[in-house]
Amino acid sequence: MPPAFLTSAELRAQGLALLIGVAAGVCAFWVGLPLPWMLGPMIATTIAAMSHVPVRAPMRLRPIVIPIIGVLLGSSVTAQVFGLLQNWVVSLVALPIFLAIASAASFAVYRRLGGYDHITAFYAAMPGGLNEMLIMGEQAGGDGRRIALAHAARILVVIVFVALFFGLVLGVSSGVRGATQWIPLDALTGFDYAVLATCAVLGNWLGTRLGMPAAPVFGPMILSAAAHIAGVVTVSPPTVFIIAAQVTMGTIIGSRFAGASIAQVGRDIALAMVASACMLVVAVLFALGIGWASGIPISQAFLAYSPGGLTEMSLLTLALDQDVTYVSVMHILRITFIIAVAPAIFRIWVGRSGNL
C-alpha cells in the first residue's frame, strides 16, 4: 500500500523511473527487442535501481493500470471459448502436479544450495503472488527481504526468458498485439469508452467485495468479457493503453530492486535465477506433455505454466497474440491454489518434520 502522501523526492524518483522506462521502451522497440514496451523498461530500470540511480516504483499507477489490463484480457474472450473448455481438462488436472514438482525443485535450490532457513526457503519457492507470499512468509517467521527478492527476481527472469525465447527462437516479437491490429484512440465511441471504464471500475469493486482471487484483474476481466460476448461493445481498448500498461508494469518490476546492489544481494539473485530456471524446465516438460495429450499448442501451454506474475504474463500473452483466456485462467488458478494450500502444506510439513 503506497503512503498517503509522497514527498517531492519520492515524486522525482518515480518520475525518473517512468522517464527511464519510456525511453528504454522506445529504444527497445526501434532495435527490435521482443516485447519491447515491457522488457525494455524492465531491464533499464533494474540496471538503474541496482546502480543506485534514485528511482522508485510508481506504485500509485498500479491500481490504475491493472483494472485496465483486466478489461484488455476480457476483450479477447469470445463465446467460442466455452466450446474449448473441454480441451483444458488435461491442463487443469496437471496444474497441481506441476506446482508440486516446480515448488519442490525451487525449494531444493533455496534450502540445499542457498542454505536458507526452512520457512524462508518454503515461501521463496512457492510460485504465488509476490505480495501474498511475502505476507505469509513474514507471518510464519521467514526473512521478508529474501522472500520479496526471490519473487521479484522470479518474475523478472521468467518474463525475460519467455520473451526472448518467443522472439529469438520462435520468431514472435510483436510489441503490441501485432502491427495489423493497432487500435487508434478514435476507433472507440464515447459509449465504448464509458462501457469499458465501467467494466474497469465496477469490476474492480465487485471483485474485491466478493473476495475474488486477483480481484483488480479478474473482476474487470469478467465484466469486459461479458460485455464483449453480449455485443454491448465490440472493440478492444486502444493500443496505446496496452503500451502504457506494459511500460508501467515493466518500470515497477525493475524499480523493485531499488536500494539493492550486486555486491549485497548477488548471491540471492543468482539463487533466484537457478530456482526460476528449474521451474521453467519443469514448465517446458509439462507443456510438451499437455500439447501431446490435449492438442493445445505447446507455446500456449508453456505460457500458461510459466511461473511469472499474473498481470505480467497476461500482458506478455497479449503481446504475443496467444490465447489470453486460457493463459490467464491458468495463472489465476495457480495463484489461487498456492494461496489456498501453501499455509496448510507448511503446517503439515512442519508438524511431521519438526523443523521448527
Rank of each mutant, 00 (worst) to 15 (best):
P2F: 08
P3W: 01
L11P: 00
Q14A: 00
L18D: 00
I20L: 08
G25A: 15
G25D: 09
V26T: 12
C27T: 13
A28S: 10
A28L: 10
F29L: 12
V31C: 14
P36G: 06
P36R: 12
L39G: 03
P41I: 07
M42W: 01
T45S: 07
T45G: 06
I47C: 10
M50A: 07
V53G: 00
P58G: 07
P58L: 11
P63E: 05
L72K: 01
L72F: 14
L73W: 03
Q86R: 13
Q86W: 15
W88K: 03
V90S: 07
S91Y: 05
P96E: 12
P96V: 14
P96Y: 14
A108Q: 09
V109Q: 10
L113S: 09
L113N: 08
G114Y: 09
D117E: 14
I119E: 10
T120Y: 05
A124I: 03
M126Y: 08
G129C: 09
N131T: 08
M136H: 02
M136W: 02
Q139P: 01
A140F: 13
G141S: 04
G144W: 05
R146G: 06
R146I: 14
A150K: 01
H151E: 04
A152D: 12
R154H: 11
V157W: 14
V157I: 12
A163V: 05
G167T: 11
L168Y: 15
V169Y: 12
G178R: 06
A179F: 07
Q181T: 08
Q181G: 09
P184C: 14
C199D: 11
A200R: 00
W205C: 13
L206V: 15
G207V: 09
G207Y: 09
T208V: 15
G211T: 06
P213G: 11
A214F: 06
L223K: 01
S224D: 07
A225I: 00
A226I: 10
V233R: 03
P238G: 12
V240A: 15
I242K: 15
A245I: 13
A245Y: 03
Q246T: 02
M249C: 03
I252E: 08
S255L: 07
F257C: 01
G259W: 11
A272M: 02
M273F: 15
M273L: 14
L288E: 10
S294T: 02
G295L: 12
G295H: 06
I296R: 04
P297H: 04
Q300H: 14
Y305N: 02
S306K: 01
P307L: 11
G309M: 12
L310A: 12
S314D: 08
L315P: 00
T317D: 10
L320H: 08
Q322W: 04
D323M: 03
V329W: 02
V329E: 06
I332Y: 06
R334N: 02
T336E: 06
T336H: 11
A340W: 09
V341K: 04
A342R: 02
A342S: 15
W349P: 01
R352V: 07
